[in-house]
């Protein structure tokens, strides 16, 4: 499926643009990655004793895979609400530069801020990547409708995946249930590694994994925050050191 040319009458209706956005989810391998990831999140929610409604609400209103697994894992292993909220807040900071960089792609001089509300809510790493790929092929005045369609499609795929994963975890044999749960760490590890373009990102990922078991031994209840802050700051130090030498 190719999008119609920029001057095509197909783009005259915002609803058509929404439909083109919706159909574009079939044009990317990231949809499959999202499906697998959210299958795992559904299973993780089940085995961490959350309800299906809870899992679906987290996908709909949080709409950030890393934040969702941080939330499920920390709350499920007995962290306090404050500890979970801090970890999620820090993980979500990266949404800020994403929103800042993606919204100008859809803005026209006549665009009102409230028209961008859903686009801002739908912004997460997958949508961010796809906007940079698809939006140059969409007329500027139809981009908000297109992005809303794309985001609506991706959210629907993830809600379906959550539901399937939840029931699979409830009904499968132990081995297959374990296989579904293993999807989460694998898909997050590799998608984060794939998105790591700079040395600081690679060091943060590798050190973050290696330092967690050490931080967990301290049993402070803040394991994730301690290992994250230390590993992230060392990674930043490596970045800084290379900049200074360069």
């Amino acid at each position: 499926m190719a999008l119609p040319p920029l001057d095509s009458p197909q783009w005259q209706s915002p609803w058509r643009a929404f439909a083109w956005g919706l159909r574009s989810i079939t044009q990317t391998i990231l949809t499959v990655v999202l499906f697998v990831t959210y299958l795992g999140i559904g299973a993780l929610a089940h085995d961490s004793h959350f309800s299906l409604l809870w899992a679906l609400c987290s996908t709909l209103f949080v709409w950030a895979g890393p934040a969702q697994i941080i939330l499920i894992t920390t709350l499920g292993s007995g962290a306090t609400i404050i500890q979970s909220a801090i970890a999620v807040t820090v993980s979500a900071i990266r949404l800020f530069p994403m929103v800042v960089s993606v919204l100008p792609l859809m803005r026209t001089p006549a665009t009102k801020r409230r028209e961008l509300f859903f686009a801002a809510h739908l912004t997460a790493v997958t949508l961010w990547v796809e906007c940079h790929r698809f939006l140059p092929q969409v007329p500027r005045e139809r981009r908000i409708a297109f992005v809303n369609g794309l985001g609506f499609g991706l959210v629907s795929v993830c809600l379906t995946a959550n539901t399937v994963g939840y029931f699979l975890a409830a009904n499968l044999t132990q081995t297959l249930g374990a296989a579904i749960l293993l999807l989460t760490p694998l898909s997050f590890l590799f998608s984060t590694a794939r998105n790591s373009r700079e040395v600081a990102d690679v060091v943060a990922l590798a050190l973050g994994i290696l330092l967690y078991p050490l931080a967990a031994k301290m049993n402070s209840g803040l394991d994730i925050l301690v290992s994250g802050l230390v590993a992230g700051t060392i990674a930043y130090g490596v970045h800084w050191w290379r900049e200074v030498r360069a």
């Binding site: 984060t192 990102d201 060091v203 990922l205 994994i209 967690y212 078991p213 967990a216 290992s227 930043y236």
Partner: peptide, 24 residues
Amino acid sequence: VRAVATAILAGVIAQIVVEPPGAL
């Protein structure tokens, strides 16, 4: 900020593998 956020996510990945929930 991005480095710390990545390291927090890395820690969660490690936690799921090291202290696995449920069937895992």
